[in-house]
């Protein structure tokens, strides 16, 4: 008989790997509530959640890509393209305001996915090309960014601005997407294939996983979600602002990694990503509370925190291997 029991230490490090972000988030919220009177208010909580929801939508797509062993640098540009196209499309009604950005972004995702899956080119390079090309495309349709289309359709605008129980609609949309993504990742064959490819692509192929199809799917999903986030943001701002989304892909990657997903692929999850996004939001909020610090400090703290997480992950996976 070959019997192997999990050691307690190994289990602990696994839990920490998966839920570390959530624990730190809880800790920060507690500390913040004790330190600042204005932190633990319904208003502040709502503002953190609302402002985090757009990044969360993008990060959900990024989670799939990173678990599959890839990376998607084009999401920041797709976000701004989605916003501009949604604002432009809104003059033809609600349907066009959604169909236009999703259609365009979906095509970009499909192209990127096909190139990555079929030619075996590095996702980093392919989506870097996407980042540059898509932003160029956005500038082209907005006359070098000079034209800002305004959202003229009230139904579409309410999608971004409408409120329920003190939270705007995008928050609920994000929550619904996160739930669906969780089920998709944990409880479907597609989700299993994503993990398998990221864990060991060659083995996955030998085990009969449709590697190419799965890869194309994750890049299409990521692009669609980025486009959707852009569209919702345009609805919120009532216009297709052309200067948004620069560096957003890096925020999304940071949130995913802080959430415990391994940058090398094969492990991670949606709960962690959501916690990672909220953590970034809470850090920003706390720094605002301190008052005399500029928002530049938020980036310093977020960066330091990211470095800390990566080191911790390294130590944790070492601990798991040793025991």
């Amino acid at each position: 008989m070959i019997s192997v029991a999990s050691s307690r230490r190994e289990q602990a490090s696994r839990v920490l790997q998966q839920h570390g972000a959530l624990m730190v988030l809880a800790l920060l919220v507690i500390v913040g509530s004790l330190a600042f009177d204005s932190f633990a208010t319904a208003g502040n909580a709502a503002s953190v959640v609302v402002s985090s929801s757009f990044l969360a939508i993008i990060a959900i797509g990024m989670t799939f890509v990173i678990i599959s062993g890839g990376i998607d640098l084009s999401v920041g540009s797709l976000f701004v393209l989605g916003g501009v196209l949604a604002a432009y499309g809104s003059q033809y009604g609600l349907l066009m305001a959604l169909a236009l950005p999703l259609g365009a972004c979906g095509v970009v995702g499909l192209l990127q996915g096909l190139v990555i899956a079929r030619t075996g080119m590095a996702p980093f390079i392919v989506t870097l090309a996407g980042l540059l090309g898509v932003r160029g495309l956005m500038l082209a349709i907005s006359q070098e960014g000079a034209t800002t289309y305004l959202v003229k359709n009230p139904a579409f605008a309410s999608l971004g601005q409408g409120e329920l129980l003190g939270l705007t609609y995008p928050v609920y949309i994000t929550a619904a997407l996160a739930l669906v993504a969780m089920v998709l990742l944990q409880r479907t064959g597609f989700g299993q294939n994503v993990y398998a490819i990221g864990g060991n692509e060659q083995a996955a192929a030998l085990m009969g996983v449709p590697v190419a199809r799965t890869k194309v799917t994750v890049y299409v999903m990521s692009a669609l979600l980025a486009g959707l986030a852009g569209a919702l943001n345009a609805a919120r701002l009532s216009s297709g602002v052309t200067i948004l989304g620069i560096g957003l892909e890096l925020d999304a990657i940071a949130a995913v990694v802080i959430g415990g997903t391994l940058l090398t692929g094969g492990a991670g999850g949606i709960t962690g990503t959501v916690a990672g996004v909220l953590l970034l939001g809470v850090i920003q909020s706390l720094i605002n509370q301190v008052g005399n610090l500029t928002s530049a400090f938020q980036q310093v703290v977020s960066g330091a925190f990211l470095a800390l997480v990566v080191v911790a992950q390294r130590l944790l996976s070492k601990a798991q291997r040793l025991s």
Partner: peptide
């Protein structure tokens, strides 16, 4: 030739997992 980071069960049954409601 398996996926080291996935669970034992998921490695064993990848592609043939038992399905419940809604597939």
């Amino acid at each position: 030739n398996l996926v080291p980071m996935m669970s034992v069960a998921r490695n064993l049954l990848l592609g043939r997992e038992p399905r419940g409601r809604f597939g």
